[in-house]
Amino acid sequence: MTIQAPEPLLTPVYQYPESLTHVPTHYCPGCTHGIAHRLIAEVIDEMGVRQDTIGVASVGCSVFSYRYFATDFAQAAHGRAPAMATGVKRANPDKLVFTYQGDGDLASIGAAEILHAAVRGENITVFFVNNAIYGMTGGQMAPTTLEGQKTTSSPAGRDAATTGAPLRMSELLAQVDGAAYVVRRSLHDVVQIRRAKKAIRRALEVQRQGLGFAMVELLSSCPTNWGLAPDAALAFIRDEMVPVFPLGDLKVPDEPAAGAPA
């Protein structure tokens, strides 16, 4: 499907990515999962690797991500996407393999699988969508839920004394030797979204260069389960999540010196 230019002199400068299917997403209005999908698809388009990319979907709201990417896809068990991606990548070392996981999947039930994928320096790219809540099951507390944040399983607000404090996975994984690239970005405004896209590109380039495990954590909104309008949800990321999950580069490989042999 191509959108026709209104005038012959106008040329499309931004259009629907080829690496997205034309299946409308199941995400709620204003949910930034859609932005994460779009950015990944744009990067795959720009790198020209759609036919050489294999995605691994997880369980949670991202369970249907396989429907939306126009690449080969696997659908993994809850938390096991890094293990499944390990098998896919070892069987296809010349392909780009990425997982797309939420915080319940990656930081809770899949904590062991993500940690050891990083420990092995598994040459995969992980897109970690952190919205501080279990979205698909209706808004329960996640390991990344903020202190005091009300969820359906922490109705009085998350109490650190009994449920712990938010788990910062990027900080945890960045100190693993096998991790080559670990950064945290946010999807709460246009500037941050642009930065997130650059990080997604870099994370896939790291894999293409065979440098090891790469992960981009994306702070993301869940308007429905946070009980906020879409714009207020973006403000919640900026005002409440970013202070707990600081944005930045936690681990970045050295840039090859200009003119140095590859």
């Binding site: 959108i3 499309p12 204003g30 779009r38």
Partner: peptide, 8 residues
């Protein structure tokens, strides 16, 4: 979030 906007 829906990649619904084409820009010219």
């Amino acid at each position: 979030p829906e990649a619904a906007i084409t820009v010219f």
